[in-house]
């Protein structure tokens, strides 16, 4: 029997042949889910995650093809490879779901998030916040004598870093869009 040497969890023609199915290591994965933009489709996806006990770290959803009534849901989730595979398969059997792509495994994705930061400060702190914003290529989109609203785009890590720096300078509020992602290349 062993002569066939089939790897655990291997499917033929699959990049998964290369990984260990039994790995207990959890990692973050960005999934792109293309769906029909119909009533309740987001509830189906979210209900699947809560009903089966999966995590959602970030979720974005918007119509991407108005004519074709298609929306793109981008989910950042966390789990072992076996759990991620199970999430993919479970998403795939929802009727209005057309395609599920594990961007993290299948394609080095470009990931971007937009965030707005309100920083209230005067004097040296106000100047410092503006200086750091410049380094991070954040734009000032609202300004009063006591506050700024910065707009910043980047990877979630970059936005986290910016938030850390703004906190001691008078950070009042943050709004983040969640991750949008596409595979690199053609």
């Amino acid at each position: 029997m062993a002569a066939l040497n089939i790897k655990k969890g291997a499917t033929s023609h699959s990049a998964y042949d290369l990984r260990d199915f039994h790995s207990e290591v959890e990692s973050s994965h960005t999934l792109a889910v293309l769906v029909d933009n119909e009533a309740g489709v987001l509830a189906r996806v979210i209900g699947l995650f809560s009903g089966r006990g999966y995590n959602i770290d970030s979720l974005t959803v918007a119509e991407v093809d108005h004519k074709g009534h298609r929306s793109r849901i981008t989910i950042v989730t966390r789990g072992t490879m076996a759990v991620i595979d199970q999430i993919k398969a479970q998403l795939g059997r929802i009727v209005p779901v057309h395609q599920v792509i594990d961007l993290t495994t299948e394609a080095q994705p470009v990931e971007r998030e937009l965030a707005l930061f309100k920083v209230a400060a005067t004097g040296e702190k106000r100047i410092e916040s503006l200086r750091l914003a410049e380094i991070f290529r954040a734009n000032v989109v609202d300004s009063t004598l006591e506050s700024f609203v910065f707009e910043i785009t980047g990877t979630p890590d970059k936005i986290d870093a910016f938030a850390e720096l703004m906190r001691p300078l008078g950070l009042k509020d943050v709004a983040r869009t969640g991750v949008a992602a596409l595979p690199r290349g053609a």
Partner: peptide
């Protein structure tokens, strides 16, 4: 055992028992 699993629902495969040939 070497385990083979034939199922029309891909989410049934490797859900509980990892199989060798799905």
């Amino acid at each position: 055992s070497t385990k083979v699993h034939v199922d029309i629902d891909a989410s049934s495969i490797n859900k509980i028992i990892p199989v060798d040939l799905p």
